[in-house]
Design a protein around this nucleic acid. Structure first.
Lengths: 142, 142
DNA sequence: TTTATTTTTGTAATCGTTTCATTTTTATTT
DNA sequence: AAATAAAAATGAAACGATTACAAAAATAAA
């Protein structure tokens, strides 16, 4: 994924019909650039210093706004937190049952032909959520 | 899926090292036989009359017990509720964005070869969660 | 039956997320 | 630049699905 400039991120928001603010641009940049699938709390802690003032409510509201606009994904991982993903392209999420890290896995082909009896269904979004041990935890006990 | 007798369900619990009770057997039978991916609340409402007395806490505790034992699956669907699935074999869950119903979809082959760069990962469980419109909602506006 | 252990129960607590009214910022118009 | 109207940010309070807890009831063994 190429690195986007702040001007390009600004354009993405405006093309989606979203009004700008200092908070919105910072939150969008953080989530779009992160590969760690952060929670709202993580976004909040990462930006509160940089922004001087920031409310957790703003983070939640903004992340929901972006999700509804299709700019990011909200992931329902089973650790009790909502996670946010700035990469909306088709990919799987692997959560290590040992360290809890969430890794991306690339999928090999279009998911529409992975299933039987899905003829009448119109699939618009897929969350492929795998569990197990990541390479690091598989090799050692940490 | 063949219909299981109550004696067979009893055996499944005992083989998993789980002690029996009236509530446990009823909850297990309901979730194992249901294809509707019920929430804890649904299980509770369905069984409270039949059992005379039943606590929602018992339902939650028991469903967690079965999940930890690998007898059922806990699904993290994004409607704010945990859903439970008595079918632990590999299959995808399709949630209709119109009516909210959760349908099962059969998958065509083992999921381990659907992904690239997953060589070092030990995949033990997969939740394939798809969204879109089910055939009923696709054809009409309900 | 007696006993020890486990399970059920109902209430209270938890905590991630949302609601709400107010203040502040934004973008447009004078 | 200043004034204005609309939208966004804020933080306290509410929400609600799930969990923790201690007491009561049921289970299984002797």
């Amino acid at each position: 994924m190429k690195k986007l400039t702040r001007a390009e991120l600004k354009n993405e928001l405006q093309n989606a019909g979203i009004r700008l603010s200092v908070q919105r641009l910072a939150i969008y940049e953080f989530v779009r650039m992160s590969k760690a699938h952060p929670t709202a709390e993580v976004v909040y802690e990462a930006l509160r210093e940089e922004l001087g003032s920031l409310s957790l409510t703003t983070v939640y509201n903004t992340l929901k706004l972006y999700t509804d606009a299709g700019l990011i994904l909200t992931l329902n991982i089973d650790d009790g937190f909502l996670h946010y993903d700035g990469d909306t392209s088709l990919h799987a999420h692997f959560r290590c049952s040992s360290c809890g890290a969430i890794h991306d896995l690339a999928v090999k082909s279009d998911y529409s032909n992975w299933f039987e009896g899905s003829d009448g269904f119109a699939i618009t979004e897929a969350q492929l959520y795998l569990k197990g041990l990541c390479p690091k935890c598989k090799s050692c006990k940490n």
